[in-house]
């Protein structure tokens, strides 16, 4: 087959020829089937189920139109979840990105030092381990009686707190843990962006007599805008989809109560797997899909507009 094609020297990448068609069929057909079977069809099924009263344990699944959605917007727990998720997203994203950017700015300037690699590694370390062991450690740090955090705040004269079990604090404690775990990742992305900014611009800025802060304000940040936007939207998307983090932190007697930290995917999981209302849970999934799609759309626009 190769030899036959050899005669056709003209068509290069621009036009489709037989070996490429063959390659596409062999590679893309299985991949497309996989995508269909384990991603696309299940997602469509989810949307379809959201228009039905679909209980996992009942054989009949009658069509009920938009009832699930109407009910959702009167469901206190779902509205709580929506609010908590938004608070979680806004606070954790802003704090994580601000700290990550600050650290990146500090690290960027003295790249010649070997020590910066060590810093980078240390800040990145929390990104690595999985959530269950991390939650074991943090649950103990937050423990009301023997927890380390109560000891530390005690030094500053603050009364011991039930960090996870106090409904007023639980969401903030989980945000703190998520910030701790997320900083390293975004720090690396910021460092990449910073590397792109050419040195000449800095030199020019310093010749004009700008101090460090002014330089950051007028040179670095504007040039860093695309990467900041990119991080912002990726982080917001991830934050809206947060689940495992909350799930493991509410697990067990030491865990947080569910309502103060209820997030959308958690509520969905509970409706689906605990109360077995798959249709209702699917409606929640669909709303999440819409929210995240809008965020993604904004991302594409913000990145493109640069």
């Amino acid at each position: 087959m190769e030899r036959v094609r050899r005669n056709m020297r003209v068509p290069i990448t621009r036009r489709l020829v037989w070996p490429q068609v063959f390659y596409c069929i062999v590679v893309l057909v299985p991949v497309t089937i996989l995508y269909l079977v384990i991603r696309i069809i299940p997602i469509i099924q989810t949307i379809w189920m959201s228009f039905h009263k679909w209980d996992l344990v009942r054989p009949l699944h009658p069509f009920i139109g938009l009832d699930n959605y109407v009910k959702l917007f009167n469901d206190r727990l779902f509205l709580d979840a929506l609010r908590n998720t938004t608070v979680f997203a806004i606070v954790s994203v802003i704090v994580t990105l601000a700290i990550a950017l600050m650290i990146a700015l500090m690290l960027e300037k003295s790249m010649k030092w070997k020590i910066d690699a060590v810093y980078k590694m240390l800040f990145f370390l929390p990104v690595v381990p999985t959530l269950v062991p991390v939650s074991v450690v943090w649950k103990w740090i937050y423990d009301p009686t023997y927890g380390l955090l109560n000891y530390l705040v005690g030094i500053f004269g603050i009364k011991p707190q039930g960090w996870l079990i106090n409904p007023k604090l639980a969401l903030w404690s989980i945000i703190l843990m998520s910030v701790w775990k997320g900083i390293g990742y975004y720090m690396i992305l910021f460092l990449v962006g910073l590397k792109e900014i050419s040195l000449e611009l800095y030199e020019a800025a310093s010749i004009d007599g700008a101090g460090t802060l002014q330089r950051i304000r007028y040179v670095t940040l504007p040039l860093l805008r695309p990467i900041i936007l990119f991080n912002l939207v990726i982080a917001t998307m991830t934050a809206y989809n947060v689940f495992a983090l909350v799930y493991v932190m509410t697990m067990g007697e030491q865990g947080a109560p569910a309502n103060p930290v209820r997030v959308i995917v958690f509520d969905m999981y509970e409706n689906g797997f605990r109360y077995l209302k798959m249709g209702y849970a699917s409606a929640e999934a669909t709303i999440l899909l819409i929210i995240v799609s809008i965020l993604t759309f904004l991302e594409f626009r913000s990145v493109r507009s640069r």
């Binding site: 009364k159 011991p160 039930g162 079990i165 106090n166 409904p167 509410t250 697990m251 067990g252 007697e253 865990g255 947080a256 109560p257 569910a258």
Partner: peptide, 21 residues
Amino acid sequence: SAGRVIRSGLDLRLFGAGSGV
């Protein structure tokens, strides 16, 4: 000394995941 409970006289379930409360 600060008036905080360091031993419950009767322990009641005040929080926790799921239906237990």
